[in-house]
Design a protein around this nucleic acid. Structure first.
Lengths: 191, 191, 191, 191
DNA sequence: GATGAATGAGCGTTCATTCAT
DNA sequence: CATGAATGAACGCTCATTCAT
């Protein structure tokens, strides 16, 4: 039976290294060292590096979706729900900058390519929520009548960009700015 | 058979490969093969791989700025100028998907890290134009009173995201959709 | 079949190859092959080729100094001590021709350049012994009153040359010839 | 017909570079650049790099022998002739340090190996002179009765070592020191 | 003759992965 | 179960040599 500590140590070490240095800066030997395990041990928990990276992605995504859905009430108005999701997204990334950086590294790599397509067709938790929200918004004529993909871009694009700018210290996002940014995004998608 | 400048062949091969496969998928030997030259030949034109990559970036950037500034009139209203830049950006990326992918690969890599900061402080052609536009817009109370960095995010974020989605075939951007997307971005930044 | 320490195998293979073929004739891949290890294995024991070469040098030097100082008695007359060192030097090189050749290759290379100066100012074991011997000899007016560097040259020059000639099979040094050569060197430095 | 200027320029550039940087620091392209010719031009004058190097060696050797034999009178006493050769050797090397360094680089390289054997069997000008001098000295019982090779070592060893030390600035050889060094060498070989 | 752009074999080095212990 | 030494393919890069101009 696998010792869960060790798996977690490896995952954390890998996530930290990849988030901070990119895939280039995260050889398996270094991940093992940071995790305090032998190099071969990683392969007991993850079939190979690709699997490790993909699994890590899923874990981050799961954490994100959990945060997005926490307190999300489908019976609230579209605008309110949108702002909830937007601010939750920003808050999560600001609070977990390594998770954010990891997602960025992942998306911008051969690994990410396949996943992007899945996402857009997406049946995944948080993603689906956005989709349903937009579909409902379009149907109720509260949201612009644009293809779903474009609405996603209008909403996610600024949020992710602003999160990156905060993490890279180009801007300091406080609660006020988070709220105003999310509202600006709403202006973008709303009719 | 024509030999249209070896440097250009190498640059094109490198850009294609990096855009399509990322830096990992573009070893010098493969770039050379695609360019139809010997491996050593690359080094007659580019000091090393870093220089090749950086130079390629500058060339793409130049092409982009040229397009953005083409027909840009500073005496037109803020909104009109914004829409000009937004639609020009989208059109350029749609017409030159490899350039777009290359920029993305570059920004999300050790090479791009240094450039990002420069860009945000930016004295570069197209970048400066956006900055001046936003500053003027804020001063005239036409644009939201948000930090410049956030305005950049609100404008660029969706545009880049939507361009990527088009290139990845998640959506088909025609002239109409380009215009409506740019307008949605304007809703984002306008007061 | 015994596996008598991989580090030693690598060191021996490198020393042999470099001694016989020079640095040019000793690519890492060939060293690895001769040592019966994979190419990458060398780097577990030596950070890079420079380190391998320098470390090898130190090991040879250590062996040499050990032999020189073995049985060296500071309370014996200058002449006797000189002859002890001279014959010990010759015997060592004759008995370890690869060590000798390695030292020559090393000294005549970019690696050796830095070491040469150190040596002449030398606080190293065997070197220091020669220096003290000469200084004492000069003070007691048993040795010619020449700069230390010149005395070194008068003593080492012939010894190293004769050792090389023996190793290259230009002459066969037996115990008798070793003794007479050392004595000739003494004639060179003595008053 | 070959333009002799160009050949000389190439030879000088190659000698300088190899003397100063060793064979590693003297790629053909750099030699060509220093000589002010195209890279391919070298191959009009020298079949390949090996030939260039070997030819260069012969030229240096010739210059050396010319100096040694200049003013050498076979009717003078052995000792005097020996001192003539010794001091001439030292003076030559001190006056032409690049020639000296070149000889050292050459001897300590795969190229030098073959030549050393030739030399010792040597029918070459200067070498032959030494050989005859020693043979005569041994026959007349003025020089120690040692194998010719050993006598060579006793004479050349210190001279070359001291020349190197001067060129490397470990000692400053003036006329007085040159004379005393040559005399010390005589003490070495004389009965 | 002279050139220098082009070549590609060969270098030192890294790192994902395996497997004997 | 866990280890980390061992592996070797693959990388970026250099340089002696060639040959079209």
């Amino acid at each position: 039976m696998v010792k869960p500590d060790k798996r977690a140590e490896i995952a954390q070490a890998a996530l930290d290294l990849i988030a901070e240095q990119g895939f280039h800066g995260a050889p398996m030997a270094l991940i093992a060292e940071r995790a305090g395990v032998g190099a071969g041990t990683i392969y007991r928990y993850f079939e190979n590096k690709d699997v490790l990276i993909t699994e890590l992605y899923r874990e981050v995504e799961e954490r994100l979706y959990a945060v997005l859905l926490d307190g999300y009430a489908t019976d609230r108005p579209i605008r309110e729900r949108f702002l909830h999701l937007g601010t939750a997204l920003l808050r999560f990334f600001i609070g977990a900058p390594l998770d954010f950086r990891y997602l960025e590294q992942f998306h911008n790599s051969p690994y990410g390519a396949a996943f992007r397509r899945d996402k857009i067709l997406g049946n995944k938790g948080g993603c689906n929520t956005f989709r349903e929200l937009f579909e409902e918004g379009v149907a109720r004529q509260v949201v612009k009548d644009l293809p779903l993909v474009v609405l996603f871009a209008l909403a996610f694009g600024p949020l992710l960009t602003v999160a990156r700018d905060h993490i890279l210290n180009f801007v300091e996002l406080d609660e006020d700015l988070i709220a105003r940014t999310a509202e600006a995004c709403w202006d973008c998608v709303k009719r």
